[in-house]
Structure formats: C-alpha cells, structure tokens
Amino acid sequence: MSELIPSFDFQAVFIVPWQEDFQGYFLIATMGFLISLSCGLIGNFIMLRRMALIGDAISHSVLPGLAVALFLSKSLATTAMFIGALVAGILTTVLIELIHQNSRVKPDAAIGIVFTSLFALGVILINVYAGEVHLDTECVLYGEIAFIPFEPLIDIGGREWFPGSVLRMGGVTLLVILGIVLFYKELLVTSFDPGLSVSLGISTRTTHYLLMGLLSLVIVSAFQSVGAILVIAMLILPGATASMLCSRLPAILWLTAGLCLPATLAGIHLSIWLDCSMAGAMVIASAVFFILAWLFSPRRGLLQQLIQKVRLPEVHNLTLDNSQE
C-alpha cells in the first residue's frame, strides 16, 4: 500500500512542477479549464433536460467516426477526424430517436443499444486496421491530457502560443458561451416548460437540435484529452455541484464557471502527488467538490437536512406554544 500512495510533500507537489516546467503545466491547466468550462456550462442545460446520458452515448460513439475518418483519409489529418467524430455524434442522436420513435423500446434502452453498437464497431475497425493506423482505443476511454505539452505549438503573430487542440477547445468554449448568452431565453423556456415555449412561438425542435450539435462539438473536442467516459463527469459534476449551492440558473452558471479552475488545479496536483492519470484526477477533484457541496450545502445539503429533521420538532413545539398564549 505504501508503495501505491507516495508520501505527500508540499514542496514537491505544489511548487516544484511549476518551477520546472511552467509552460507545460500552464498548457495543461488551460486545457483542463477550457474543457471543464465548456462541458460544465452546456452540461447544466443537458441535465435540466434530463439528457445527461445522451452525452454518454455521444462520447462513446465518436470512436467509429474517428476510425472511419482515419481509414478514409489515410492520414491523421485533424480536420478529417474532427468531422468524422462530429458526424458520428450527430448520427447517434438521430439513431436513438429513430429507434425509440419506431418501436416500443424506451429511450434509455435505445441509448444503450446505439452507443454500445457504435463503440463495438469502432473497436473492431481499429483492430482490423491496427497495422495501418495507430489509434489507441484506451486513450479513447480515458484520454491523456498530460500529453498536451508535447504537441507542437501553433504560430500566431510570430510567437508560438498554444497547441492546436488547446486553440480549438478555446474556440469551442467561446462558441458555447456565445450560444448560451445569445439564446439563454430560448434554452431556459424550452427546458423548463415546452408547453409554454410552444405558446410563445419558440421552436423546441430547433433548440433541441442546436443544443445537440453544440454538445457533439464540445464532446468531440474535449474527449481527446479526457476520454469518452470522463467527458460525462465534466458535463455533469460542475453543474450538479453548483446547483446544490444556488437556486437560480444564472447563479448556477456563474458558479459552474467559477468551480472549473480550482477543480482543474486540484486535479493536476492530485495527479502529480499520486502519479496517476491526470484526467482521472481532475474528475476526482470535481467529484470531491460535489461531495462537499452535497454534504455541507447550506440550502439542501445532507447535514442541513439532518439538522432540520432534528430541529423540526422544536420549531413545532414553539409554534404550538405561541398559539396557546
């Protein structure tokens, strides 16, 4: 056991990495922040619409998209793979809807069938062409953000700033923020009360598909770093934590954004300490934040619920006394 968990040394965990490789850790932190920000923001709306598991499905079915793109373009060209993954993501939502509209299979089962089939297809394709291309299926599962610093930097205005993937994630994050700012009203109403949105003349269908498109985009650009499964955590955890603490959507969105940086940094240092998967550690950090909020939230935390249960009889007695006076 002692081999497994290294001893904790503040200097080594928190200071030395930044001194030795500031550039590298800065890039990792930026990427982690961008991913959790875009995922967290859009994840709030996904959760409100009870579609969290669609995110799960999309993130898995991206694999065959990548494999096919790889196979067709015979190269590792980024754009081809990006398009392939995006098409696969959108195909997933369409297939799910097709199955559950044309049969009695419920949406959850439809999700399960579609994403496992597509994922299986992806694994087989990659295995068959394993000799020709190098695509690591396990990194599809949990990604590796730690490799970001090894990517070549892209030249902007004479200085090499960021790797391409970080830039792309930045673009997607901007798009998500822009989308939420511009269409906040529509997103809110269609999520809260589809009936009302019909009567207000806001199209639920269009909003749904725009959101799904944006979700696919976010997942596709995020999962190369954090992997298919951990993307889901990024989608759900920050929003869930924030919603334990605040009661209004704007506040929740701001808090989600605020939680991203601490969670990312905590994750990085956790992984440095334990020497384990960085993406995994980031998720664990977010999960710890959630558990803290769950326990101690002044509004709806477990502790609060417990206290109320204990106090309730007292309050009751009090009011009774008052009424007797």
Partner: peptide, 25 residues
C-alpha cells in the same frame, strides 16, 4: 407538467411570459 426542482424563482417564471414578445437575441 413542469419540473418543480428547476432552478428558477417565481419572478423568473413570470418573466418567461414576456419572452414571446421579445424575439430572438
């Protein structure tokens, strides 16, 4: 017909009634 846990307060809900006249953006 609605999710009562939705993170909106009373004023937000009433404000939604105005959204139809606001139009896009």
């Amino acid at each position: 017909s609605v999710d009562w846990d939705f993170p909106v307060n009373v004023l937000d809900v009433v404000l939604m009634g105005r959204y139809g006249r606001l139009g896009l953006l």
